[in-house]
Design a protein around this nucleic acid. Structure first.
Lengths: 210, 210
DNA sequence: GACCTTTCTGACTCGCCGTCAGATTTTCAG
DNA sequence: CTGAAAATCTGACGGCGAGTCAGAAAGGTC
């Protein structure tokens, strides 16, 4: 097991190259956010770090590969969310726990939304690498959610017409998508607090039956 | 008020041109589905109808304009869904009504998912034309959902921590996103029926409090 | 400071974009 | 039916970004 990073020609890269690669990734993330994936050009990324397009192709075969790398980095920030999804939301402080999860999810989303949007697009368009990364990112969270639903169904707090896996997917779907709507909703009077409270209430309801 | 369709130079177009424009739109929809928005090229669209790129630019300033037109067409198919969202889900057959709405939504989604995905991407990346089309498409459905939530809150079936507008957005979000997940979920054992039932149950719960 | 390795880039080919002048097809008055 | 006008279509072109590669530049070693 090694932490070595490789150039596209297969050689292990040194510290100067590693710094260049890092700058390229940061510039990619920045431009992805500013211009969107449809207008993301290798020329712009290279120019942004004061380098030439050829340099980009030393480290990535194409823009997708750089975005995939960013998506993998985002994955690391999703995993800790699972700590906020332990069983017991049906106790008195359940709604408060739901709120804490929603808060953490919002922070995660804010930090990575441009990359996550690109990841989801590629995954939904059938790209298997991006599908794998998304599945990996959601895995722990989904498992924790499934366990909570299964427990609720077993305790008859939730109807058995709820499939735990699908419900878990629905919860993730709701979080992701509602935050994606956020900028537009803000214009129509729904502020961040309304979103936070409503999302927490809905999650609490879906997961505990209360 | 006129149903006339215009070429980019502003002239009203005749029936031959209208047919060509229609073929271009159909080809755009087809390729959007097959290749995704990132690999959609004007050259391919023109080739697909056995014509030259210059023809495409007679009717659309760019690919976005064609996709926008397709999104407007999809909008017309969303509006009828509102008929399935009349108050009264808290009565005995409420869950069955939820299921009927989910069924109709799935049909709508299947027919337009590639276009809707593109529309949502552009809207989320800040394009105001696509935002306007999306808002317009969701307007009636959102209003109906808001009314149902407001009614539930007034009758104390739903907690007043639920903001009607945000809840309506969450419901739309859940439907859209869960269906987008569908292909991946199928691989992990969740079939269409599980999605249908789970979604109906969650909607029923979120909208009636049962 | 000569030599070797790592990293970077100028310059090139290729293909798509978007335009426009002119070719082709359709329309229709006489 | 015919010829001219209107509508529609397209070949060909300049421009720009993608991706490649040979060789230049930078850095390290003894």
């Amino acid at each position: 097991m090694s932490d070595d990073v490789f150039a596209v020609d297969g050689r292990v890269i040194g510290s100067r190259a590693l710094a260049t690669r890092r700058k390229l990734l940061d510039a990619t993330a920045k431009l992805l956010q500013e211009q969107g994936i449809l207008d993301l050009r290798v020329v712009d990324i290279s120019r942004d770090i004061g380098s030439s397009p050829a340099t980009f192709y030393q480290y990535f075969n194409d823009v997708d590969e750089a975005i995939l790398e960013l998506a993998k980095e985002a994955t690391e920030d999703e995993k800790p969310l699972v700590a906020l999804l332990q069983p017991g939301w049906n106790e008195a402080d359940g709604l408060e726990r739901a709120r804490r999860f929603v808060d953490a999810y919002m922070v995660y989303w804010d930090a990575h939304h441009a990359v996550l949007r690109a990841r989801n697009l590629k995954a939904e368009e059938g790209n298997r690498h991006f599908r794998a990364v998304r599945t990996e990112a959601n895995l722990l969270v989904m498992e924790a959610l499934q366990a909570m639903v299964a427990e609720g169904v077993a305790a008859k707090r939730l109807p058995n017409s709820l499939d735990p896996f699908t419900t878990a997917a629905a919860v993730v779907a709701m979080c992701e998508r509602l935050l994606a709507f956020q900028p537009e909703m803000a214009k129509r009077g729904a502020n961040r607090d309304a979103i936070r409270n409503t999302l927490a209430t809905l999650l609490y309801g879906a997961l505990t039956g209360h």
